[in-house]
Design a protein around this nucleic acid. Structure first.
Lengths: 338, 338
DNA sequence: CTGAAAGCGCTTACAG
DNA sequence: CTGAAAGCGCTTACAG
């Protein structure tokens, strides 16, 4: 038994049903103003009767543009990127755009693959935190006139926009906060050297330590939970710091675990400031002092750059930098209780 | 200064450049086998020289099908859904499909909006955890021949596939595990009545308690952190349970917070089993005993239903149910140490 | 193995 | 305000 398919009417069916031309139907579907009230009424009724749903594919081909944004990120399971994707989706939806999710797992190959696809689909724009900043696929996109905004990490191609945050400044701020509280040995659970955000945050930390005339004490992690564990153990083993800056949210989980296992209490035995402000930061004990990126504002900025480009078409690429915000809570030990 | 755009060649340009017809070019792009080696060579060179990138929009329109899957979920910030989206993206990518992310925030309106869009875009298939199971937009999708699979929550339309997990069984298993350890008053931090997963998990808990002849003791939450806090407080205030089942991962965060604030130690003063197995379950202290859904297998199943439908086109809708897996760790107090 | 031609379902100058 | 017609860039029978 097969049920008869009723739907799948096309614009010609609607035109026939309404006794008008396809041009008129198309007009009520789009630039509604040029059609007489009577015609519009008949078209609307015909659409209703037929259950007509315009085929956007055809419209996009004809108009040579789509309202889809590609979002290329390395790891959606990282809460920072989850938040970013969520914020981008939100901003895109409000602007009448949709989001094609491209998760690359930090694989340059998968990234290139997705970028190629996005150009073939003639996507309306791409927001990317590039695994490979020099990927030539970005150039192809730009060649085709598809705007690109680098988020979180910069892109080599100078035609791309960028929406970054002040990573070095954030790490310096965290370090200084701890230094000002009287800590002499402030350790850094650092991000990897080969990641822009890792390098930048390390740089900020080093600057602040040098500025204070303190000896830096850092261990390299991988921005993952396990790297946080390893780096924290390494720091505990040497000349033990009394305060720690942890370079991202995933490593913070590992650091907290190791500290706890080693009987090191926060903030009495060890003060801690974490970069990133994950949703669970206020649910652990003590509540985490963090440096939060204004993720929503950044997503909004990125989407705006892609969707409102007509207004400033000739303005060239824009580069926006956002500041982190310090949330002083309990793990740093600087609030009254210390 | 404006740079000249080189790209944007179309198939006719390639044909001219190669001295062959567009049909031949199209053939090397697709059904590669029917073309002579010499012709293929010339086409490939022409493509290379021109930097040609086929316009998939045109191909999709012509072929009347796309390789995009819509993923409609209520809240990507909920780690369970993050994981699900991640797993779906992975499976889709492996099958040569891409993912359009539709985050609905549990808004029926936004959900309907996205579903309408997905039908207009002639998406290849839709995976949805419906906020509104009776949304008539699902019927439109199905009418158009777009397959739909309900994930996490069922759908009213009987033409939809479903990939669900045994929520009642999981809650019953958690409860029995605690009961078997000797607890007499096992409390439930319950999900909301109006959510399928909430209802089902509560049902499983009630079944297990009844079966053991124990009085149920539950407080309703909202599946969010704050509801977990409130419900846990409520349970602590009345006749205090010695063990708790928490119905999802977000409420577990709230529950842990309240327990900690109240000086209730896990597992000595309170045993706890959490439904869902978030990535931080092994990073807190004590490590959480959880019930994990086989998210990857479920995502794989859902994608397979959508992408390999030709093979069993006439098979009618499939309904697959997956079992949770109990991970006994430290928070339930049943491991040796208790 | 290869090409000419029709057609996918729309939108949009161009005329009226 | 409305319609006839061209065209977006492909794919695919159909013929050879």
């Amino acid at each position: 038994m097969k049920t008869i398919t009723l739907a799948n009417a096309k614009i010609t069916d609607v035109a026939r049903e309404a006794g008008l031309s396809v041009a008129t139907v198309s007009r009520v579907l789009n630039q509604q103003d040029i059609v007489s009230a009577a015609s519009r009424q008949r078209v609307l009724e015909a659409i209703e009767r037929l259950g007509y749903r315009p085929n956007l594919l055809a419209g996009h081909l004809r108009r040579k543009q789509t309202r889809t944004l590609g979002v290329v990120i390395s790891d959606i399971m990282n809460p920072h990127f989850t938040e970013m994707v969520r914020a981008v989706e939100d901003a895109a939806y409000r602007s009448g755009y949709r989001v094609l999710l491209c998760n690359t797992d930090e694989s340059s190959e998968k990234e290139a693959d997705y970028l190629q696809l996005l150009s073939a689909e003639r996507t309306g724009g791409v927001i990317a935190s590039p695994s490979d900043p020099a990927d030539s696929e970005f150039a192809r996109l730009l060649d085709l006139g598809i705007p690109v905004v680098a988020i979180d990490r910069p892109l080599a191609d100078e035609r791309a926009h960028s929406v970054l945050s002040d990573n070095a400044g954030a790490a310096a701020l965290a370090t200084r906060h701890l230094l000002a509280a009287g800590h002499e040995v402030v350790g850094l659970v650092a991000g990897p050297e080969h990641r822009f955000t890792g390098r930048e945050r390390t740089r900020g930390y080093l600057d602040a330590m040098r500025e204070a005339g303190r000896e830096p004490r850092l261990a390299l992690g991988d921005f993952q939970i396990d790297g946080g564990r390893r780096a924290t153990r390494e720091l505990l083993d040497g000349p033990r710091p009394t305060a720690l800056v942890v370079a991202n949210n995933l490593m913070t989980i590992g650091a907290l675990e190791v500290l706890n296992d080693s009987g090191v209490r926060l903030p009495q035995d060890m003060a801690l400031v974490a970069i990133d402000d994950p949703f669970w930061a206020t649910a652990v004990h003590p509540r985490l002092t963090t440096l939060a990126q204004p993720v929503e504002a950044m997503a909004e900025a990125a989407v705006t750059l892609l969707t409102q480009r007509d207004q400033d078409a000739e303005g060239g690429p824009r580069h926006e930098t956002f500041q982190f915000e310090l949330h002083v809570r309990d793990s740093c030990g600087t609030r009254q209780g210390r």
